[in-house]
Every structure is written in C-alpha cells, then in structure tokens.
Amino acid sequence: MTARESDARISDGQEPRELGAEEPEGHQHRSAVDGVDVAPVPRAMLRDALGSGDLVVAPGCYDVVGARVLEAAGIEAAYLTPFGFQAADAPAPHAPHDPWERYLDRARELVDAAGLAVIVDGQAGLEGNRGAAERAADAFSAGAAGFVIEDRQGFGKDRPLRTMAEVGREIATVRRELGRETTVIVRTDAVRDSLDDARARCESYLDAGADLVQPLMTRYLNYPDTPADRERRMSAYQFLLERVPADRVVAHSPTGRHLPVSEARRMGFGLYFMSQLLIASAVTGMTHEIAAVLADEPGPTPLLTPEDLATLTGVGRWLENRW
C-alpha cells in the first residue's frame, strides 16, 4: 500500500477492511457533557490533519492550563497521558471514587477547554475490569478524537502479549463502538522482544481496521544519545517502514528529545506522541524558579506576567478583582 492510498483511507474515514456487520447509519453515542456530542469538530480535525500528509504532533496533556498552552502554540492534538494525569490527580470530596471516571472527566475538561483533538489512552491501568467495548464507548462519550489500545495482557511492561487474532477481534469491537469518526490507534509492545514480530503485528493491526499503529520503541530510547545510538534507533524505524506505511505509524519520545520533529517529518510519520513533554517541562521550570527565588537570583527564563497568564488561561475576570 502506498502512502497516498493510506492517506486517503484515513482522511475519508473509511475502514481499511470490512469487519463484519455494517455499522448503523448515524452513530448514536452522545457526550456526557450536557447530553450533546461536543466533539465532532475535533474528531474531524484530527482525521483531516492525519490526511494532510504532514506530521501531527500530540504532546501529552494532563490539565486545562496545558491544553490552553498547546492551543495558543498552534498545536492541533493532545494525548491525555495517564502518567501526567495520575501525577496531578488529587480527588476532591465530590470527585468520582473510580480513577477511570476521573480520567474521563479530565478528557471532557480538555475537550471543552481548548480546540484540541484529544487522544485518550484506553489501557492506562485505570480502567479496572472494563472490557474493550465499554472503554471505547466511555472515551467516545468523553469526546475523544483518538483512542489507543495495546496488545499486552494487562498493565505492566513485562506482561505477555496477546495473539494478533485476539487483538484483531478487539480492534473490530472498538471500531464498532467508536464509529468511523474517531481514530483508532493500536500500540504494540513487541519491539522489546523482536522487530520482526513488531513489524508483523503492525501490518496485522492495520489490516484488522486500525487507523494507526504505535510500535513502542522504548528499547531504542534508553540508549545514551550518541551518533551511534541515533543510527541504531533510526535503523530500527527503517526496518519497520519496509512493510508499514510511515504515515500510519505513531512515533513517540517522552519529551520529544529522542527524535527531532524535523526527522520525524522527513521520515513521513503520521503522528508523534510526546507523552511527558508538558509535565517534565512544568516540573523542571517550577524547580528552577523556586530555587532562584529562594536564592534571590534571576530565574532561568522570564516569567509570564499576571496579565499574560490571565489572557492565556482565560481568567481575566478573576485578575480584574485582584490586580
């Protein structure tokens, strides 16, 4: 399959292969936000962006301020990162006890707060015993423009992998729940064992109906960043791309430092997850600024003024009463 053909398959929202029974006309899921589907535009925006032929960068986002920062920076998509969510999560007394429900609430908040296509990780270790259909329906109701499933059994990096046939059946289930407008992404952890297996799984998952595949390249991101290690990393990607269309691949780097955006764009990748970029930069910036203030020294970078913060976050009315 050519990149042009795969672009067309993503941009027109058609499934790459029949998965059995036809989906009824007019998908019936409604958002839990005021009983209305709040996300048709972000969903279409993500599909249009993926079909444009250019790289879509999706930093990990975990709060409303981060969503508004991304929107102000011209970013179109955000990945609701389970790590960032859990690091920032402190349930209020009125909040749902179930962490999955709180996670979905955060997705709704991000969708409502900014014009971003929010991609929800559907196997975050927060979902308990919910099956694929329930998780997908929950994500749709929360306004997800994209939904990620994985091929490992349960949560944990050393968990065994399911068979390709099992994952294929889950892809069909998720596709039926999400409809055609939501982008289905399948992550494979097979790279940890074999690039050959990872490549075969990527092909299988695309054939089963996934829009994009994410080979988890952590094994190649743990090297020191030397020229030899970069070459090893890029060789692994090139091996996968011999049989998997680049524009159907989700590249990833926790902070975007392992794979320059220019290189990801040159290779033709469709989507780039930077899952911990915002939380890492926020914690780093807070740590440096606190140290500078306590030492009565200039901070490492100029801070935004209260007026700038009010404009960015949309709380100007609050500021008017206090400054």
Rank of each mutant, 00 (worst) to 15 (best):
F269E: 02
Y205H: 06
R201N: 11
A198W: 13
Q214H: 13
R248G: 02
E181C: 02
L271Y: 09
A144L: 09
G268W: 05
V250K: 01
E177C: 09
E181T: 09
M164N: 08
P254C: 06
S253H: 01
R219P: 00
I171W: 10
V249G: 03
L178V: 08
F273V: 04
F147E: 08
R232Q: 12
R152S: 14
M164S: 12
R169Y: 03
M234G: 04
L240G: 09
G143H: 05
P160K: 01
A200T: 10
R201K: 14
G156I: 06
A190Q: 12
E150G: 07
D225W: 02
A165M: 02
V167K: 01
F273R: 00
D158N: 14
G168E: 07
F239T: 05
L216D: 12
E231G: 02
M234E: 12
A264R: 00
L241I: 05
R199M: 08
P245F: 10
A246P: 09
T226K: 10
R233D: 10
C202F: 11
R219H: 12
T218A: 07
T173A: 13
R230Q: 11
Y220F: 15
L161D: 02
L206S: 10
Q238L: 15
R176Q: 10
F273T: 01
T255G: 10
S204R: 05
T226V: 13
L240V: 15
P260R: 07
Y237M: 08
V244P: 04
I171L: 08
P160A: 03
H252C: 12
A172W: 04
V167G: 04
A165P: 00
A198T: 11
E181H: 09
K157E: 14
R266Q: 13
G256V: 07
Y237V: 06
L212Q: 02
A144T: 04
T218W: 06
R265G: 15
T182V: 13
R180F: 13
D158M: 15
S262C: 05
D197K: 09
Y272L: 14
L212E: 02
A198S: 14
L161P: 03
L221R: 01
A172L: 02
K157N: 10
V244L: 10
M234F: 14
A190C: 14
A208H: 01
A165C: 00
F273K: 00
R248N: 03
T183V: 15
F269S: 07
S262K: 07
S253V: 00
A210Q: 09
E203W: 02
M164P: 00
F155K: 02
L161V: 04
M267C: 08
A145M: 14
P227V: 06
R219L: 15
A200G: 11
R265M: 15
R232F: 00
G154K: 01
I185D: 08
G154S: 01
V250W: 00
R266V: 09
L206A: 13
G146L: 07
P227S: 05
G179V: 03
L195G: 05
